[in-house]
Deep mutational scan, measured.
Amino acid sequence: DLRKKIVDLHKSGSSLGAISKRLKVPRSSVQTIVRKYK
């Protein structure tokens, strides 16, 4: 699940930009998912 991957990467200390590059999703999507998770 993409959300879980993003949250896991964020927990392990990756920046939003790094996560978005790695998973090839827009940075804004990463930000939204991380914000919802918090």
Score class of each variant (00 low, 15 high):
S28Y: 11
K36Q: 13
L2K: 06
I33F: 01
R27M: 12
L23G: 00
S28P: 06
K38I: 12
S12D: 08
V30T: 01
K11Q: 09
K5V: 11
S29V: 15
P26C: 11
S15G: 09
L23R: 01
K24R: 12
L2H: 05
V7R: 06
K4H: 10
S12Q: 13
D8E: 14
K21I: 08
V34H: 04
L16E: 05
S29E: 12
L16Y: 12
K11E: 09
V25A: 04
R3A: 13
R35T: 07
L9K: 00
K11L: 14
I19P: 00
I19E: 00
K5L: 14
I19Q: 00
K36F: 09
K21R: 14
S12I: 07
H10K: 04
R27S: 04
K21W: 05
V30M: 01
G17S: 14
S15K: 04
K5A: 12
D8R: 11
L23P: 00
V34I: 14
K21L: 07
L23E: 00
V25L: 10
S20F: 00
G17Q: 11
V30F: 01
R3E: 12
V30G: 03
Q31T: 08
H10F: 15
A18L: 08
G13R: 02
G13Y: 02
Y37M: 08
P26G: 06
K11C: 13
R3C: 14
K11F: 08
K5G: 04
L16I: 15
V34F: 02
I19S: 01
V34R: 03
L23Q: 00
I19V: 02
I33C: 06
L2Q: 06
T32F: 11
R35Y: 06
I6S: 00
R3M: 11
V7H: 06
G17V: 10
Y37H: 06
G17M: 12
P26V: 06
A18Q: 13
V25P: 00
I6N: 00
D1N: 12
D8H: 11
K24N: 13
K38G: 10
R22V: 12
K38Q: 11
V34S: 02
R3V: 14
S29Y: 15
S12M: 12
V25S: 04
L16P: 08
P26Y: 05
A18Y: 11
L16N: 08
S15P: 05
K11A: 09
S20P: 00
I19G: 01
K24L: 08
K24S: 09
G13F: 03
A18M: 10
R22M: 15
K4A: 10
I33M: 05
R35H: 10
I33L: 05
D1M: 13
S28Q: 12
D1A: 13
R22H: 11
I33T: 06
S14W: 15
S15F: 01
R35M: 08
A18R: 07
K24A: 08
R3K: 10
S28L: 08
D1R: 13
Y37Q: 03
R22T: 13
T32D: 12
S20I: 05
D1G: 12
K11I: 13
L16D: 05
Y37K: 03
T32S: 13
K36R: 14
A18H: 09
I33K: 04
S29G: 06
V7K: 04
L9Q: 04
S28R: 13
A18G: 06
S15E: 03
G13W: 00
I19N: 00
R27I: 14
K38P: 03
S12V: 06
D1I: 13
V25F: 03
S12T: 10
S15Q: 03
S20W: 00
K21M: 08
P26H: 08
V25T: 05
Y37L: 09
D8G: 09
L16R: 03
G17N: 15
V34W: 06
K38L: 14
S28F: 08
L2S: 04
S15D: 04
K21F: 05
V30K: 03
L2N: 05
L2G: 03
T32W: 12
L9F: 06
K5Y: 10
H10D: 02
S14P: 02
S15W: 03
K5N: 07
H10Q: 03
K4W: 11
T32Y: 13
S28D: 07
I33V: 13
V30H: 03
L2P: 03
V25G: 01
K4I: 08
P26R: 10
K4M: 10
V7I: 15
K4T: 10
S29K: 15
D8A: 14
S12L: 12
V7E: 07
I19K: 01
D8N: 10
K5M: 14
K38N: 09
S20Q: 03
K38D: 07
V7S: 03
S14R: 10
G17L: 11
K21E: 08
K36V: 07
K38E: 10
H10Y: 15
R27Q: 05
I6M: 04
K36M: 12
K4V: 07
D1E: 12
I6A: 03
I33P: 01
K4L: 08
R35G: 07
Y37P: 02
G13I: 02
L9C: 09
K38F: 11
V34K: 02
D1H: 11
A18V: 08
K4S: 09
L9M: 14
H10R: 04
L23H: 00
Q31N: 08
L23V: 03
R3F: 14
S20R: 04
K11H: 07
L16H: 06
S29D: 09
D1L: 13
S29P: 02
V30R: 04
S29R: 15
R27V: 11
R3H: 12
S15I: 00
K11W: 06
P26M: 05
K4C: 11
R3W: 15
G13M: 04
K5W: 13
G17D: 10
K36D: 09
S28W: 12
K21Y: 05
V25R: 03
V7T: 05
L2M: 09
K38Y: 14
Q31P: 03
V30I: 10
I6Y: 01
D1W: 15
T32E: 12
S15M: 03
G13N: 03
K36E: 13
V7L: 15
K11N: 11
R27A: 04
S28N: 09
V34E: 00
T32L: 14
K21H: 07
V30L: 04
T32I: 14
L2E: 03
K21V: 07
V7A: 08
L9T: 01
Y37V: 05
I19R: 02
S28T: 10
I33A: 08
Q31G: 08
V34P: 01
S20N: 02
K38T: 09
I19T: 01
G13K: 04
A18I: 07
G17K: 13
S15N: 05
L23D: 00
S14H: 15
V7D: 02
V7N: 04
P26F: 04
I33H: 05
R35F: 06
L9D: 02
V25Y: 05
K21G: 05
L9E: 02
V7M: 13
S28A: 10
V34Y: 02
G17A: 14
K36A: 12
I19H: 01
A18T: 09
K21Q: 07
V7F: 10
H10E: 02
L23S: 00
R27D: 01
K24I: 04
K11Y: 07
I33N: 03
P26W: 06
R3G: 07
S20H: 04
T32H: 13
Y37T: 04
S28I: 08
I19F: 01
L9Y: 05
K38S: 09
S14V: 15
S20Y: 00
S20T: 05
D8V: 10
L16T: 09
S29H: 14
V25I: 14
V34Q: 01
L23Y: 06
K4R: 12
D8L: 14
V30C: 07
D1S: 14
S28G: 09
Y37D: 03
S12R: 12
V34M: 07
K5T: 10
